[in-house]
Design a protein around this nucleic acid. Structure first.
Lengths: 213, 213
DNA sequence: CGAAGCTTTGATTTGCCTCAAGTGGGGTGG
DNA sequence: CCACCCCACTTGAGGCAAATCAAAGCTTCG
């Protein structure tokens, strides 16, 4: 967010976003229904968001890595719409929303950057909907890996070597398929020479081919 | 959007949102890739949004009715991310985005209302993802009808009597199932006394039961 | 070192898709 | 005005991808 500001204004933003917080593995950053006060920018670690439907079932709605922002759905109702659970020990910047909005009224570039952030989330979810409604199980898994790879690359990490912070069950839940199906897709991709799986560690040999599966 | 403003300020908003436009059935309001200049508030009629994936397939990402806003995904990249196609002759307010952002910097209630609008879209899509990844074909159709009913009620129409502006194929595409499956779900709900279908016209007898299917 | 949880793989079942045939309604041209 | 055609819809039969059920190997961690 700060990248859009010049030095004078970065200070103003830092005054608003001055606090941060640790979240240990398995701990909740916020819960569905909690009163909304702040957005959270993930500094390190990773987090999943989960909604629990009426009859006890859970659904993983997203995986977040360092640099991504949590809590955007809470603005609409002044309450978080999901639980955010750390997948490993993580740290977040606390962004108090009232002061943040106030600063957006003053700093045009910050305002625009914030609007882009919200809009990007809309586009991301829209793409995920397309994936969930049209694609086969294997394509979903492939797209999931390609997406992770792309996001790692954006943040300066290797796009070929990834460590999955979530279980097969969480991946399956996120993709709308069962954990056994996720496992079979991994095995098949490995048999076809597209990647190598070893538990939580995945080595991608051919991201382009994976994107075309 | 205007509901959050007092009389003085409504004038300011009206100065920004002064133009409107007709879109005839089948016509495109905007296309994926078009340069982003404006959001569109649907005044009357209905519109679907469609993304075309790489290999020619289309995916319906949303149905919009009067009072809802189109183009929110375009803010992130300065280009629309989908086609918006009128399902019947419709009219839209044109909301030039630059002036709109400027006014949001001046009017705090307008700014907040706009943030809520974006956030609501995020929550809506998040719910749709849950639906697509976890639910059976029949539940998807039931949820689709309940959602339509709720939105009609919000806008002051009868929540029990609806006229579908889209085909079975478009519904199926939106829900990630085939048109035959949509048709079978309608027939089954009718057999169970939950509703009456006659082509495009649907009479809901028991919205609560439908929500629990 | 043992227990609990995660992962892989195989066998069987099932819900939805595919293919196919027939109906009905609305628009068009004769 | 009517006959025709096209398109959207309904319904049935059979097949397939993924779910479910089951079992064994592997990790992690107290």
């Amino acid at each position: 967010m700060a990248s859009c500001l010049d030095d004078d204004h970065v200070g103003r933003l830092e005054a608003v976003v001055s606090h941060w917080r640790m979240v240990h593995r398995g701990e909740r950053l916020f819960r569905a229904g909690d009163h909304f006060r702040s957005l959270y920018a993930l500094r390190s670690g990773s987090v999943k968001t989960v909604t629990s439907d009426t009859c006890g079932g859970e659904h993983v709605t997203g995986f977040f890595m360092a640099g991504e922002t949590l809590g955007l759905g809470a603005i609409s109702t002044d309450a978080y719409d999901c639980d955010a659970i750390a997948l490993e020990d993580s740290s977040v910047c606390v962004i108090p929303f009232g002061p943040m909005e106030a600063l957006c009224r003053e700093l045009k570039p910050l305002q625009h950057q914030f609007h882009r952030l919200l809009s990007t989330e809309i586009v991301r979810e829209s793409r995920q909907m397309t994936l969930l409604s049209g694609m086969s199980a294997e394509r979903r898994v492939a797209a999931f890996l390609v997406d992770l790879s792309r996001r790692l690359q954006q943040r300066g990490y290797s796009p070929r070597s990834l460590t999955l912070r979530m279980t097969r069950e969480e991946i399956g839940n996120y993709l709308g398929i069962k954990l056994e199906t996720v496992s079979r897709a991994f095995s098949r991709f490995q048999r076809e020479g597209l990647l190598h799986v070893d538990g939580k560690h995945v080595e991608l040999f051919d991201v382009e081919a994976l994107a075309l599966v």
